[in-house]
Simulated scan of single mutants.
Amino acid sequence: MYSQLKEDIITASQTIGIDKIGFASAAPFTHLKTSLEEQKAAGHTSGFEHPNIEERINPDMIFDQPQSIISIALAYPTRLTKKAESIPGERRGSFARASWGIDYHDILKERLGNLISFIQERCEDDETITFKPMVDTGELIDVAVAQRAGLGFIGKNGLLITEEFGSYVYLGEIITNIPFEPDTPIKSKCGDCTRCIDLCPTDALLGDGRMNAKRCLSYQTQTKDMMPLEYRDKIRTVIYGCDICQQVCPYNKGKDFHIHPEMEPDPESVTPLLTPMLTMSNKEFKSQFGALAGSWRGKKPLQRNAIIALANAKQTSAIPKLLEVIENDVRPVIRATAIWAVADLIPTNNPEILHYFKELQTNEKDTDMQNELQHAIQTIEAK
């Protein structure tokens, strides 16, 4: 009965800006339960996931009488068509590719809304049809739905890998009570390849499609507290996200699609100058980064990451600005990170800075500040 509707939806999806579409049953994802429980018990979850495991694997707990799930994928670009201006002596940071262009949550919501409107128009005589759209902030696990719907397979890095676009896709889904014929799931095609596992700089990938999310550099760039020392040099000059496990994947070789204008990145936003970020106002932050998905955690994490990136880039010209931050910023995390960066950047033992840090140490009550001051003093004295 719904076979023609399914074909019409597939055709319509191509006209409303959906690159891949598939249909899955709404049966529980029972096979994921043990793994999810193990990950949570091991402390491998990020805390950004939906907290209720039962709701993550049982569509019938979040939707009345689900019959099908429509899964969609949109391909995003991986290369800049235009680079930001190079300024002598100033280094730039970068955002991971998934944060280029307008926030993908907004793009997916718009596409899902248009798809639902199309279906409603075709089924206007049936008022019993219902829908629940969601993106990665919803209950279900996007990659599990997409894999079941035949959009691609789940790689050893835990990402969905499509034949056409590799893993450079945004995913969304719609639960509905329409009983569509499901498509065929795709099994893993990673074979013996372990490039993503071998080249992950923090050993976050566990080898079976799961990860210790707290060791993932993408997670580390999104935290709001002090970044642990072991991760600081590993983020290099990336101030949001991490693309390494995608960049090294053979299925992503040569993949670069510029299909959707709203996904085209602004070079000044996705590769920003680092030094100006240290003292930017909330208004300036919103103007430059507000449209990006990478702005969702606010200004502080990105400023902290920019400080770390300056140290990793060895931009010694930033030392005066970092000292200003230490003196004037009211946020302990930013001040403490700047202290670490200054100690890392100065080429030799600097008595003046050493004296300044020791003076700060005598009056400082914040734990993060005390820890970084102690570390910085030891670092400078060893030079």
Rank of each mutant, 00 (worst) to 15 (best):
K314S: 14
W340N: 05
I308K: 02
L310V: 14
I339M: 11
D329Q: 12
S317E: 14
V325G: 06
K299W: 06
P332M: 03
L292S: 12
V330M: 08
S295A: 15
W296S: 15
A306M: 13
A338H: 09
G290H: 14
A341I: 00
L310K: 02
P301T: 10
I339C: 03
K299Y: 03
P301Q: 04
Q303N: 07
D329M: 06
T337H: 10
V325Y: 09
A291V: 12
I307K: 04
N312C: 05
T316L: 09
I326V: 14
P301L: 04
K300C: 03
W296P: 01
W296R: 12
I308Y: 00
A291L: 13
G290F: 13
P301S: 10
V330C: 06
W340H: 09
A338Q: 04
I319G: 09
G290M: 05
A293V: 03
V325N: 07
A318D: 06
E324H: 07
A313M: 05
T316A: 10
E327R: 10
E327D: 13
R331D: 14
W296Y: 14
N312R: 07
A313Q: 04
W296E: 09
E327W: 01
I334R: 03
I339G: 07
R304L: 01
K314P: 03
A336P: 09
A338F: 00
A313R: 07
R304M: 05
N305A: 02
A336F: 01
P320M: 08
V325W: 08
A336R: 00
A306T: 11
V330L: 12
N312M: 04
S295H: 09
R297M: 10
I319V: 15
A341H: 00
I339W: 06
N312Y: 09
N312W: 08
P320C: 08
I326P: 04
V333D: 04
I326N: 03
G290S: 08
A291C: 12
A311F: 10
G298E: 07
A306F: 10
K299P: 11
L322H: 01
N305Y: 01
I308E: 01
R297T: 11
W340P: 00
R331E: 14
V330G: 02
I307Q: 03
R335S: 09
